[in-house]
Amino acid sequence: MNTIDELKRRLEALTPISIDIVDESALHARHPGARAGGGHYRLTIVSERFRGAGRVARHRMVFDAVGDLMQGRIHALPMNALTPEEAGKPTNKESR
């Protein structure tokens, strides 16, 4: 399974409404800080689970879900972890 698919699979634990992952590895290839290898992926994830959680807590939720991918295949994972309201998306509960 490629890294993006594996990442998406693990992030299902957060019951996301949407996940967007951009592979930015090429932008960072060969820079000295990345000498250990591993890809760079930019993540935007929208989930009800982030409601009431601060920024650090949201990132930790994502890192917990991603688990050991952060120790190897993923070198950097800049992210936006948003609630549906913050993302401007309709929530599951919303009714009109």
Binding site: R55, V56, H59, P78, M79, N80
Partner: peptide
């Protein structure tokens, strides 16, 4: 106190 990484610091 741990404040955050790059994304968080930039947003703050």
């Amino acid at each position: 106190e741990f404040v955050g990484g790059c994304d968080i610091v930039k947003e703050m």
